[in-house]
Nucleic acid binder design. Sequence first.
DNA 1: AATGAATGAGTTTTCATTCAT
DNA 2: AATGAATGAAAACTCATTCAT
Lengths: 209, 209, 209, 209
Amino acid sequence: MNCHSYFRIFLGGDIVVKKDKPKYKQIIDAAVIVIAENGYHQAQVSKIAKQAGVADGTIYLYFKNKEDILISVFQEKMGVFVSKLEEIISRDLSAPTKMGLMIESHFELLAGDTHLAIVTQLELRQSNHEIRLKINNVLREYLKLMDEILVKGIEDGEFDRTMDIRLARQMVFGTMDETITTWVMNDHKYDLVELAPQVQRLLLKGMQA
Amino acid sequence: MNCHSYFRIFLGGDIVVKKDKPKYKQIIDAAVIVIAENGYHQAQVSKIAKQAGVADGTIYLYFKNKEDILISVFQEKMGVFVSKLEEIISRDLSAPTKMGLMIESHFELLAGDTHLAIVTQLELRQSNHEIRLKINNVLREYLKLMDEILVKGIEDGEFDRTMDIRLARQMVFGTMDETITTWVMNDHKYDLVELAPQVQRLLLKGMQA
Amino acid sequence: MNCHSYFRIFLGGDIVVKKDKPKYKQIIDAAVIVIAENGYHQAQVSKIAKQAGVADGTIYLYFKNKEDILISVFQEKMGVFVSKLEEIISRDLSAPTKMGLMIESHFELLAGDTHLAIVTQLELRQSNHEIRLKINNVLREYLKLMDEILVKGIEDGEFDRTMDIRLARQMVFGTMDETITTWVMNDHKYDLVELAPQVQRLLLKGMQA
Amino acid sequence: MNCHSYFRIFLGGDIVVKKDKPKYKQIIDAAVIVIAENGYHQAQVSKIAKQAGVADGTIYLYFKNKEDILISVFQEKMGVFVSKLEEIISRDLSAPTKMGLMIESHFELLAGDTHLAIVTQLELRQSNHEIRLKINNVLREYLKLMDEILVKGIEDGEFDRTMDIRLARQMVFGTMDETITTWVMNDHKYDLVELAPQVQRLLLKGMQA
DNA sequence: AATGAATGAGTTTTCATTCAT
DNA sequence: AATGAATGAAAACTCATTCAT
């Protein structure tokens, strides 16, 4: 039994290996579309199955239950944000530059997929306590990467050494989140990415040494 | 018939005048407690009635339907925030000071009523589109007052005249919201009000001229 | 204790004496209007009270319960039909003539009060079994008078002596009822009374000796 | 895809094709029994499901809602009356004979299914306006066939050419309906079919040339 | 006599999940 | 692996009636 099979068992048995199969992603994508177009509370499993072109029962071969679909949607999509941010952090850039790139890339990813933006900013937040706790666990990975940038900025003397890192991160994330949500609630009628530089400037000025 | 009674009739018939009756507030307060303790989706009308010490049917003498209860909860409670902010704005203080007082008072109000904090930060966000739109209309009044402070700060030359007011407001509100939500999700295990000065400092530095 | 007080006790205590008071008829008339305009299932006691210009509770000073209102409506209104028919029967006329006058007078009474026509032909029939049984008891008095005409017609040799009186009466009543109901369902858009002579002719021909 | 399957899709999607499945008729029959035995207002969906031997939810795989069950009951059962009448009309008989057969067959069908007689004569009439309008639409087909007999009778010189066809039909239907309802309200304690010849004689005499 | 605020019982429908095929 | 018919639990709202004033 190797490292992988250990994780397979740990993470929920034989379902994990199915993440590679085409129908897994098919269902995830169907869920995003159905939730975005019908709203969280009108996104029945049967609708997702229909959109994915599979039978209702088939869903349960790939996901434990409906909650599992929703969390997986967030996990899979958030993975792209994490990868992108990891790539930015790995580059040899100053912390403020990294922060700026993060904001820009975060905005770009959501501006490029309005269905996803609706789902993450509005619909998924209607889910119950339990699901939101699990979603927050997924989000935590992303927030940790943000913290890395902040720590580096302080170490490099570019960010205010007296600021509370947790609060700073809450400001950065809260501001981005509010900006994006407002954009989504206004039906994406203006260009989100264009706002990135001004958001950067406001945030970086607040944090600078 | 004076001006007020005219408006009472104009604004929606029989139910409006009942806002003054004791059972109206009794039910609102019961709703906050039941939602906070049971979660949005487990806050049945019968539970709220029981907590309020009235019969199920009595609820419908004071509220059109369940949705009306939820919106009224937000309206009534948000009213306190708005009054407080109006009072702060009316004082002869600098914009940064007003901003600081606003943050402090916002934190204080929620720290002083953890049930309400749970309801506004977590539970009420699980409501459907329609209810959230109505809640946002109520919130808008509060955001407009925030804008007044920002405008005054710019006019007085205390805030950066080149910043976008809407973005600045989204930063302020987003940061406060994220800070409070994190505090609620951590079961209020630290002192929210103590964080206010640091939050102020971060935000004001970002906006200063 | 005289004959009247006997009936008072027998028929339901002190409510009977209230039939003479103005509010009794006021409520009966309100019920007819409310039922005709809102439909049987939308004729709530509170609506009837409002239409009658009394408080909900007042209804219960004059009627035992809602069912009692409905039966009383039928009773009071049917009384007019019975009186009219009694008057016709008392006259010195042939059975076919009496039958013709009955049909004409029945049509006239309903054509002159379309609210009442809607209530008796459509709405009151939506009432439950129990109420309809009681309504039928009231109706029976009217049907008995019809039978008197039929018996006289047979005795006088004007009606077919071999016909079953009960069936003949069911034909007469069924035909009138169906004719009137069709007229009501067509929104009274043609003149009901004008149809009376043809209805008479059809029915009398069927019954003639 | 033949003509029929085209119409199936056109006429209302998935549910129409289910009319052929055994559970559809099972539920219809259960509804008749439950309504006859419990009364219209005590015929809960759960009772019908139990009687049909299916789960409550299964009902909704075959019917849009409760109203749809009730209308379908009338439609399916009335279909038998219509077919029978069509068969009678298609035969090479005189109009009076056809009329007689119609009355006889109508009485026989209801005398042979007292549950159905209770449902159509008493219980279904308690339904609300909307349902009754839909029921009347179904009934109209039957009444049109009656008219055909009347028209033929007049053309053949067997029925009075001066009579109003609509009134004659109202007499025929009203008489049959009243006769059957009286029989049902008397708990079927006498033989309905035995009455048919006398009803025929009365009606035909009224209409004859 | 009159009021009207308060009561609380009762039912349709949805939809996540299962399991025989 | 895939299907989809069947399941059954769960909750908002109405309105006839009461009774303290």
